[in-house]
Amino acid sequence: MLLSVRGLSVEYRQVGSANRTVTGASLEVPAGEVVGLVGESGCGKSTLALAVLGMTRRSGQIVGGSVEFEGQKLFDVSQGSSLTEDEWRAYRGREIGLVVQHPRGAFNPVKRIGEQIDRHYQVHSGASSGEARRRTLELLEQVGINDPQRRVNSFPHELSGGMAQRALIAMALSPSPKLLIADEATTALDVTIQEQILDLLDELRRTHKLGMIVVSHDMGVVANYCDRVYLMNAGEVVEHAPVERFFEEVAHPAAIALLAAQGVGHDHRAVRLRGLPVDTRRVPPGCRLHLRCPFASSDAGCSTVHPELSNFHDGHQVRCHRAADVTALAQAARPPAESDGGTDV
């Protein structure tokens, strides 16, 4: 296993309260596979992705769980062990690359693109500046940037969003990491560019044998590019399955709602989650989602017993008391094909 995350919890501490935005999340990425990490905004997917690198934003703190990379423990909160900042740097960027959402914002605005990519490679490989520049040009070419000789001298603001994203991917790839985390890497781009970038990542994965985590809220992206899906809601992993399995028999209400909201397969009116995302500072008893869930029932214990992640099928786990019913009900909620065929993708 390339990466295994076990029981990871991240808390943001404010005066008088602690906001646990990720609770006991586990995730595995086999070498050369693409794992999709999906969920609505604020469900903790970016926090989880960042925590893999031992990082949190602002007042955040990793309060539980462990991360193992190629069998090497990066940190384990229960044993109180973690890499030192120096040791972390051997993983950040070098073994695990991160591609962030706002590509132009990820570059230092006052330095030329080429200089920044060169330096990233030099720091991690110890290469000379000449070698680094050759590598940069080669990678920029590989990610589909025209005229790399000229582009290396561009400042970040002179690149279009798509071009900056390509450059950022080139930079992330330059030290040949084994794992690439794409945190909403294509969300800010228009759909045609998005497709090009995703195709590019897919191709690079095959040529570079990369493991990847694709953080997204776009089910289409997940369906087309991922091998395995992890769905998060309110800081928990609530469903994970191989991608074909996931789309064939989706079982968690949050997953159905996400699909329906994008007009995939279901009548969105029937399976909409009510209200706003769960406030992780005040989680309700029972299932975190039960107040928003159209399938919730007190008979099943939705409002009293917190559901565990349990086997739904082989390799397909769901955190829902009513997973079996939900699948059936969701099927029933599909609009009749003849009357509403247009929206049925």
């Binding site: 990082m55 740097r89 993983y91 960027g93 991160l98 990820a106 230092n108 991690h124 950022l168």
Partner: peptide, 16 residues
Amino acid sequence: RERTFVEAGKAAGTTD
């Protein structure tokens, strides 16, 4: 210090 390139820099293994 709250800008993306600072976080990206840290994630890329740059020292503080």
